[in-house]
Amino acid sequence: MNVPLSLDLFWWMALFVQLLAIPGTLLPLLPGLIWLPVGGLIWIVAVGWQQAWPELVVALLLFGLGLVADLLALGLASMRLKASRWSAAGAGVGLLLGVFGLLPALPFGGPLLGALFGPWLGALVVETWVKKKPPLNLGWLESLRQGAVVGLAVVAGLLVSRLAQLVLALLGVVAFIGLSSR
């Protein structure tokens, strides 16, 4: 027996998918703002393009703003301190290792502490390695200090980006509720 899905069920499915964006913005390895346009597409399947295009356009716009927030937060933090282009890659590797508990320095911390210290440690190691010959031959200690500062800037950029994406996810869910219940 084939039971057609009701419009209410589609609305709740689309809302649930969009609500997945909220934990995705807080937890680094989960998909975040991409859930907003996916929820918009579910709503388009239910009611059609003519009625649901504003929800999808808003969701795509917020997703794009989230990508820009990521790029700006990391780029500005690194540029301000004249960090190497590899510091963000080191922070990404450190994030993965930290969240999965693979950093030997953080066996007690768990995923949340790993998500904070992993990127810092990754950026510090990469920045120290890249700047083997610091300016004015100040030695490894100065290179290590510079790496630690760059690591802090990268982590601060990640936190600012996560906060901006959380606000965008909440705004997307509220906009979907407001636009789809007209």
Rank of each mutant, 00 (worst) to 15 (best):
L76D: 06
V68A: 00
W53H: 04
L144I: 02
G94R: 07
L158F: 00
L60W: 08
V68I: 14
L36N: 12
L71I: 14
L124G: 13
Q51G: 04
V167R: 13
G40K: 06
W120C: 01
E142S: 12
G122L: 06
D8H: 05
L41T: 03
L61S: 06
P28G: 15
S78V: 13
L121Q: 05
I44M: 04
L56I: 12
N2W: 01
L152R: 14
L76H: 13
A59N: 05
L102K: 03
V57R: 02
L9V: 02
K82F: 11
V125R: 08
A46T: 15
K132D: 00
S78G: 15
F117A: 01
A148S: 05
S87Y: 01
G39R: 13
R182S: 11
V126P: 12
Q50G: 06
V154S: 04
A123N: 03
L168K: 09
G98M: 04
M1T: 14
W53Q: 03
L61H: 02
A59H: 01
A153G: 09
W129C: 14
M13F: 10
A69N: 12
V125E: 08
G94Q: 06
P23I: 14
L81N: 10
T25W: 06
L124H: 06
G48V: 12
V125N: 13
V160T: 01
P54R: 03
F176W: 11
G178V: 05
E142A: 07
G147M: 08
G118A: 06
V68P: 05
